[in-house]
């Protein structure tokens, strides 16, 4: 295991029932940095993100986080601790039928953070994603772009070291795309944070990421992982 390795896919096969979506014989995501997962629909980007989040079990092989298997089922303190190191924002985020403030504070409250502190931190995160003033609105009544930003606020408020984003701008307009990209940039500047996001847009990957992972015919290919960011896009 490399010192700098965060996620390691070892002979991993991901799929559903008898269908293989993605195979990775030996693939590593390093600590820190922003990874863009690029590939067409159905290439396995979402499946990989779910597997990294511990929600999808490889049908063969292993995915390791800091050298330890990620998928050990959802039960047990170790599994919970692993999940609490990261957050995953889905492409179509699922919003709880409750206020925006409740939604954003949820992850803090289940970690045992007090109500007042959780509310204060949630308000700051809501402000950061540009939704200040909507704290008490039922989050189900937010627009698509607002809901996406709410889901991102719900993730960034936790200040986890790993942030997984599944097509964070896939369903939003240009204005919301700019806001979301600005938030991702902001989060990526925090020390020690690793962001892995999927996108169809090579331009967006160029704007945000310093590593690009291509999904081609069910396999992963990393573009120059150890080179400076600018180099990746020149070839």
């Amino acid at each position: 295991m490399s010192e700098n390795a965060l996620f390691e896919l070892r002979n991993a096969r991901l799929g559903y029932e008898n269908t293989t979506v993605l195979e990775a014989r030996d693939f590593t995501f390093s600590k820190s940095g922003v990874y863009a997962l690029l590939g067409p629909n159905g290439s396995g980007k979402t499946t990989l993100l779910r597997a990294l989040a511990g929600l999808h079990r490889p049908s063969r092989g292993h995915i390791l986080l800091d050298g330890l298997k990620i998928y050990r089922g959802i039960r047990g303190p170790a599994a919970v601790e692993t999940r609490r190191r990261m957050t995953l924002v889905a492409q179509s985020p699922v919003i709880f039928d409750a206020s925006l403030l409740y939604n954003v504070a949820y992850g803090l409250r289940i970690r045992g953070v007090g109500a007042a502190t959780a509310a204060e931190r949630a308000r700051a995160a809501i402000d950061k994603v540009g939704l200040a003033g909507l704290e008490h609105r039922n989050a189900l009544h937010l627009s698509g772009g607002e809901a996406q930003r709410a889901a991102i606020a719900r993730a960034i408020v936790l200040k986890t070291g790993i942030v997984l984003l599944d097509e964070p701008t896939g369903n939003v307009d240009v204005e919301n795309t700019a806001i979301i990209e600005s938030i991702i940039r902001d989060v990526s500047e925090r020390a020690g944070v690793t962001i892995i996001f999927s996108t169809h847009s090579r331009r967006q990957a160029q704007r945000l990421a310093n590593h690009a992972v291509h999904f081609a015919r069910g396999r992963l290919k990393l573009e120059s992982p150890d080179r400076p960011a600018g180099y990746l896009w020149d070839s």
Binding site: A53, G54, L55, I74, R75, V80, R83, R84, M86, T87, L88, A90, P93, V94, F96, Y106, G107, I110, R111, R154, A155, L158
Partner: peptide, 17 residues
């Protein structure tokens, strides 16, 4: 929505939460 449980898990919930 089946995603409610997964969303809670990705936000760090225990199975009971």
């Amino acid at each position: 929505h089946t995603g409610i449980r997964d969303t809670a898990l990705t936000l760090g919930a225990t199975p009971f939460q």
